[in-house]
């Protein structure tokens, strides 16, 4: 098994903003080792989040190649990309992105059920519930299971988002400014949770941040400036 978990080669990505093209990524090359905690630092608008979206298969690059766990993601069909997002990649967003109609428990277990058919549903749902309960207990949310996201604090919401990202035990955890909306104490808590899973389970963690102090917790820091890695 290769030691490389993520291999980004010569990735370009641009967006159309009105009448002008915004060239966000300009030939990014990046390799992330299995189990590594990598911080991608850079100023706002440097292309950090876009890079994370490309790695997380939420967006397609205009040019360049991407390999996750040795598998090329370039020619995958939409359903294969969805499958890879489901089982191999976990996402933690700055704004949590929880489903407002679902309570804490449902928000976490739904991530394990997106690929379950009718016949496997009962067994899988029970398993998802057990896993979600375990994770939420671990993250200190055992007493908030029936609460809806609007009734939680920012830190609690982010912990729910982390639980959701981890429930499928993904190989890669991508965190986009996970503490950006939190105070420093809560941010510190969240970071320690992420580091805990990175260390304990050996998950590859890619964290995007503009906060230098946060980035310093990573095994390695890469800096993105104007769409290029410095």
């Amino acid at each position: 098994m290769s030691d490389v978990m993520i291999d980004v080669a010569n990735v370009h990505k641009s967006y159309r903003m009105g009448r002008t093209d915004l060239h966000v990524l300009r030939g990014v090359r990046l390799t992330v080792r299995r189990g590594e905690f990598l911080a991608v630092a850079g100023a706002s608008g440097s292309g950090k989040s876009t890079l994370l979206h490309v790695i997380g298969l939420l967006d397609r690059p205009d040019k360049g190649t991407l390999h996750i766990n040795g598998e090329s993601a370039d020619d995958l069909s939409a359903s294969a990309r969805a499958r890879m997002r489901r089982y191999d990649i976990g996402f933690v967003f700055q704004f949590y992105h929880l489903l407002g109609e679902l309570n804490v428990l449902d928000n976490v277990q739904i991530a394990q059920m997106t690929g379950t058919g009718v016949f496997r549903w009962p067994g899988r749902a029970r398993q998802a519930r057990r896993d979600a309960l375990k994770l939420l207990e671990m993250l200190g949310l055992g007493d908030r299971l029936k609460h809806r996201p609007k009734d939680l604090s920012g830190g609690e919401r982010q912990r729910v988002a982390i639980a959701r990202a981890l429930i499928n035990r993904p190989k890669v955890l991508l965190a986009d400014e996970p503490t950006g909306n939190l105070d420093s104490a809560t941010g510190g808590e969240i970071l320690s949770v992420l580091k805990h899973f990175n260390t304990k389970d050996g998950q590859t963690l890619v964290l995007v941040t503009h906060d230098q102090r946060l980035a310093e917790n990573a095994d390695r820091i890469v800096r993105l400036t104007d769409g290029k890695l410095a």
């Binding site: 997380g56 359903s79 969805a82 997002r85 992105h97 489903l99 991530a111 499928n168």
Partner: peptide, 13 residues
């Protein structure tokens, strides 16, 4: 946004 969230956690189109 829910559509984006669902797709990010692996829901297919």
């Amino acid at each position: 946004k829910d559509i984006g969230i669902l797709k990010s956690i692996g829901a297919s189109s």
